[in-house]
Design a protein around this nucleic acid. Sequence first.
DNA 1: GTAGGGTTAG
Length: 818
Amino acid sequence: MSLKCSSLRQPPLPIPPLSLLADKCKSMHQLKQIHAQMIISSRIQDHFAASRLLAFCALSSSGDLSYATRLFNSIQSPNHFMWNTLIRAQASSLNPDKAIFLYMNMRRTGFAPNQHTFTFVLKACSNVRSLNCCKQIHTHVSKSGLDLDLHVVNCLVRCYSVSSDLNNARQVFDEIRNRTLNVWTTMISGYAQSFRANEALMLFDQMLMEGFEPNSVTLASVLSACAQSGCLELGEKVHVFVKMRGFEMGAILGTALVHMYTKNGALAKAKALFDSMPERNIATWNAMISGLASHGHAEEALDLFRKLEKEQIVPNDITFVGVLSACCHAGFIDVGRQIFGSMKRVYGIEPKIEHYGCMVDLLGRCGKVLEAEELIKRMVWKPDVVMWGALLAACKNHGNIEVAERVVKEIIALEPNNHGVYVVLSNMYAEAESMKMQLEILLVQVLFAGLASAADILQNPDFESPPTNLTPNRSTPFVLLNGNNTIPGWTFEGTVQYVTASQTIRLPDNGHAIQLAQDGRINQTFAADGDDLIYILTLTLAPGGQNCSANANLVVSAPDSHGVYSLKQHYGKETWKSYGHYLGRWGQDEPINLVIRSQSTESDDNSTCWPVIDMLLLKTSKTLVQGNDNLLLNGGFEFGPDFLSNSTEGVLLESAPSPIQSALQQWSVIGTVKYIDSKHFYVPKGNAAIEIVSVSAGIQTATTMLTEGSAYNLDFTLGDAKDACEGMFVVRVQAGSLVQNFTVQSLGTGSVIKHSVTFKAGSGSTPISFISYNINQTKDGVFCGPLIDDVVLRASHGFKLQLRLEILIYALVLVAIL
DNA sequence: GTAGGGTTAG
């Protein structure tokens, strides 16, 4: 082996500067020879020389930390520099906690930590994400009087941020008098990494206002915040600034830009940038692959993954989350199985719970319910509710009750108060026409297990369990009930008939129903179950005959609500309709009496079409709380009445003056709108959306959360629900004092456009509304209109921030011209 | 003689 430190071979010529040779060494082999010479020549006693040795072993990429530790231990009284070097090295090692022990040893030995010690030990605290450690070191810093050192306080801000204590981080940051760009960057990235994009961008705005110019490190975090909060325009301005300033498009900055573009749906721009980047790392590939996958471009995502394999770039676990979710979106079951299998075998990556989650979802969607269940059982991790939920949804869609029962037990074991799963299961039983018996079995099992009871679910909600002492007969669709009959689950009064679907009486699922004629009334009492839940009812109305001139009303009442419904025609293809009704909000065990009765609107009862009622669904929801990403509650319309599982009709929502007592939680309803599900309509986001189906109708909400004078963005999606609705619609959007009309060109094929308006909040409450002024009819004569979904309200960082960046860009242009 | 800030998924 060649030895560059060849002068070692010529002792005892004048002793060369061994300490300098240590700095020039390339390997541990060379270093050990110098170490030996130092011992022989007693130079090891020289602290400076020993420090150089230590620095190489501890910090060099070709060093050896355990050798460094042994070397350190052999030194009789190490100085500050030596302690710091070893703490620094351990802080960035795989065991950063060792740095903290060293720091404690150092103090015990009587050494007062200096400013360097604090930066290194705080780095260790950051790497172990220990808030406790951070707080303790903070007190040491304060006592030592080093709390004015910018490096030290920067480390403190970073340490608090990564330990999820943004309040303390901000407090330390606020107390810094002469902030540097690095400190600003630390705080901005702290917010961005904690998914607090709004605060990150507000701070960035303040930074620009105070005259700091960002560098590429700052901008990487700003772009991350732009990606999270949908600020495409601001992100684009950052890109222009990066180009103007001539910042190098390194892997990190480039990845942040690619991610910002994909998150905002600008896939073409993301791909163009990705292709032009001189330098990429695995994160860049991940951002592009996941971006394509999440926007439904599964083929392109997989193509890119194959390109990555071809270029022999090593994927990581995040890459596989993206690739498997692409397979999941597109239903590529074989490719998914093959890639999942290759993770361990080819790349040595142990699949994590996220990867199993993708696979369970993929298998479930493709109907491989048993295989999905097997996969969950094979996992070393404890499956979470989300994963079981995905499997339950698959069971529901593919009608596998056997697996569904096992899944429900698992979910209830994890979340004893999760009642939604019983609803899913009972609906499945109903579909399998074996509900009563199975439900009894389930109830017994649940009671046996001492778990929550399923009593809050309505009994016999679709009247498929026939009244006692009565045999339904299709040739006699109406049978008058008398004192000898009881309807399972219900009590009745007045003129009530049991109805069987026939050629003249159409009913959901072609089953049975109840007609409430003169003074007819049914009621059922159930016990509210769960702490403070909101109850929303879906009820189905059918016409009571063909030869009648006047419709009667149906009155629904519960302790907190009262609603009057009459059958509306031309709002769907079927003669029967489902309506959403807000029932109330109750605490645990409250007895709720649900009463449904008929109400004549005409004096001539003989010509009245008494309403027929069928299929009642009860949905519960917790009180909505505001998330980080939307100042509006229920902006995605996910909290509304339940849908009939086989119905292509949607659920009609009638005027609801109060956003609280509304079946569409948090939204007042004006006129008639249709609540539509993703199973039967095109829904751009989530499982539900709104279609406005009457004239001058729509939805309205209001928020008191806004700061007067501040700018806000309202993003929303308008389009058509793929229900053969053709025409041009005008939707008037109001946000505070801003009113703007949007034209929706509908081909009825499921196309939508995302829109965004910016407005300044006034004092008091800010109204937000969507009103359609015209509707149309499909070829089948069904009223139809524009679709609305995904309404998001956020603080706007567009205006001021973009302006400030623009000023910086103009300044650069000027400098270039001059 | 020693130091600080960054990107990707969920």
